[in-house]
């Protein structure tokens, strides 16, 4: 087995982050998971560490998820990005696709998590 993977979760909802972390601990206990409550914080964390995967909430105060992913991508084009949103408007999906990010439907459920992990591991 290769080196343990790392994931940055960006979501303004603490509950959402907790749910994600709880589910990941079950499925991938070896992953290194960090969390940020907003875009600013996430950009700081990202400066100090490299991540393989990013799970980013779309609807956050300040910068939205798409804008944040665009900034991450500048630094790490090879990482994998998941955009979590309940808002599956065509233009959001299109923008995400253009950026090479995967749209994952909110609310966070077992199904949505497994789609995300399939994408990361695929």
């Amino acid at each position: 087995m290769s080196k343990a993977k790392s994931l940055l979760i960006v979501d303004d909802s603490k509950v959402s982050r907790m749910m994600l972390i709880a589910m990941l601990k079950d499925l991938h206990p070896d992953w290194i998971v960090e969390e940020s409550a907003n875009a600013e914080q996430a950009l700081q964390v990202n400066k100090q560490k490299d991540f393989d995967f990013y799970s980013v909430d779309f609807n956050m105060p300040g910068k939205n998820g798409l804008e944040l992913i665009a900034e991450f991508k500048n630094n790490k084009p090879s990482a994998k990005y998941a955009l979590l949103t309940a808002n599956i408007q065509e233009h959001i999906q299109k923008s995400a696709a253009e950026m090479g990010a995967k749209c994952i439907n909110k609310p966070i459920t077992d199904t949505s998590i497994s789609i995300m992990l399939n994408y990361f591991n695929g």
């Binding site: 909802s13 603490k14 509950v15 959402s16 779309f58 609807n59 949103t85 309940a86 808002n87 599956i88 408007q89 065509e90 233009h91 909110k106 609310p107």
Partner: peptide, 28 residues
């Protein structure tokens, strides 16, 4: 936080439905 997230999801879904219905971008 959870209540907020529930409404966040609700409002997000609403934006998607409205946008689909009127065929234009809607931000909430």
């Amino acid at each position: 936080d959870l209540l907020n997230e529930i409404f966040n999801v609700g409002v997000g879904n609403a934006a998607a439905s409205l946008s689909q219905m009127v065929k234009q971008e809607i931000k909430l």
